[in-house]
Simulated scan of single mutants.
Amino acid sequence: MQAKAKQWLLVLPALALLAAVLLVPLGRSLKLSVAGGSLEHYKSLFTDGVTLTVLARTAATAAVVTLIAVLLGYPYAYLMTRVEPRLRGLLMVIVLVPFWTSVMARNFAWVIILQRGGPVNSFFRLFGWDLVLYQSVAGVAIAMSQVLLPFMVLPLFSALSGIDRRLLLAARGLGSHPVRAFWKVYWPLSRGGVVAGLILVFTLSLGFYVTPALVGAPQQSLVAQLLGQRTTQLLDFEGAGALGMLVLVVTLALVAWANRLGGTISAIGLVAAAPAKGARS
Rank of each mutant, 00 (worst) to 15 (best):
V11P: 05
L79E: 05
W257I: 14
E40M: 08
L200F: 10
P178A: 06
L87M: 02
A105L: 09
Y78V: 09
W8S: 13
I94E: 06
A59F: 12
G27R: 09
G269L: 07
P275F: 09
G269M: 04
S33Q: 00
R82A: 08
R86C: 01
K43Q: 12
R125M: 06
A242L: 05
K277N: 12
R260A: 08
I142H: 05
R280N: 05
S161K: 01
G128N: 04
Y78R: 13
L32H: 13
G37W: 11
I113S: 14
V34Q: 10
Q219H: 07
I94N: 01
G118E: 14
A274C: 13
S136D: 05
F108A: 05
G162N: 14
Q135I: 10
Q219G: 14
H41W: 11
A258F: 05
V179I: 14
L189I: 00
L55R: 03
V195N: 09
L189S: 00
A253V: 04
A276H: 10
A181P: 09
L167C: 13
V24R: 11
L189N: 02
L55V: 07
V11C: 10
L17Y: 12
V147P: 01
F99E: 00
I68C: 12
L91G: 01
M104P: 09
R180G: 10
M245P: 10
L67C: 12
F151N: 06
F237K: 13
L55T: 10
D164H: 02
A196F: 08
P25R: 01
P178E: 04
E238H: 08
L12I: 09
G263D: 09
Q233G: 11
K277W: 12
S122M: 15
F157E: 03
L169K: 12
V185S: 03
Q220Y: 09
G239C: 00
G269K: 03
G216H: 03
L126A: 11
T251A: 06
G49C: 03
V249R: 02
Q146F: 13
F124Q: 04
L131Q: 07
L160S: 07
L174D: 07
H177L: 08
I94Q: 00
V65H: 02
L167P: 12
A77Y: 05
G197Y: 03
G128H: 02
